[in-house]
């Protein structure tokens, strides 16, 4: 009997293990990089709260997630549409997928194409990115982490 119980548990549908609403938290933040003169007189990059932002500034978009529930959060996907006036500038946490059509389709950047005026298409570049996402098979209970990417104020 014990054996069969264990078997039952193993074959239980995945949904039963899934996380319930409200148990996952996501906090976004934006920091800005400024260039300042360091103590040695040489310019150095400083990452700080985005109190002052001008075109050309580098931004760091970060998303902290946490599974506050008692079950794994499976099929976990964080998606960020790049704000208008921000250009994707790389520096992203590995494993990201990209969209160049405002979230309709996703894939590695090398697999994406952008339609051209003459009806054809061309390979997408980082300048075409207007969405970024990270997919995780599961976040364990109590698990947390952070993903980030860089943007440039247009």
């Amino acid at each position: 009997m014990r054996t069969s119980l264990a078997l039952l548990a193993l074959v239980a549908p995945a949904a039963a293990l899934a996380q319930t609403p409200g148990a996952v938290q996501l906090v976004s933040s934006i920091k800005v990089e400024h260039v300042r003169k360091g103590p040695d007189g040489k310019p150095q990059r400083v990452v700080e709260e985005a109190k002052k932002v001008v075109p050309g500034d580098g931004l760091i978009f970060s998303f902290a997630y946490r599974n506050a529930g008692a079950k794994p959060a499976t099929g976990f996907v964080i998606t960020d549409p790049l704000p208008a006036n921000v250009a994707f500038a790389g520096g992203e946490t590995p494993g990201a997928l990209y969209s160049v059509d405002r979230g309709k389709s996703w894939g590695p950047l090398a697999s994406l194409r952008v339609p051209t005026a003459n009806g054809g298409s061309r390979a997408a570049t980082s300048a075409d990115v207007n969405g970024i996402r990270w997919a995780f098979p599961a976040i364990p209970p109590g698990g947390s982490g952070q993903v980030s990417f860089r943007g440039l104020v247009k």
């Binding site: 949904a15 409200g22 906090v27 976004s28 985005a50 932002v53 998303f63 996907v77």
Partner: peptide, 25 residues
């Protein structure tokens, strides 16, 4: 104004998708 809001999705028990929206910066 540059506003950014991220979303996360995950599986719900019994199928379906749960969505959590981040704060907007």
């Amino acid at each position: 104004a540059i506003s950014n809001t991220a979303t996360a999705t995950y599986d719900l028990p019994g199928g379906g998708t749960g969505t959590v929206t981040s704060n907007t910066v």
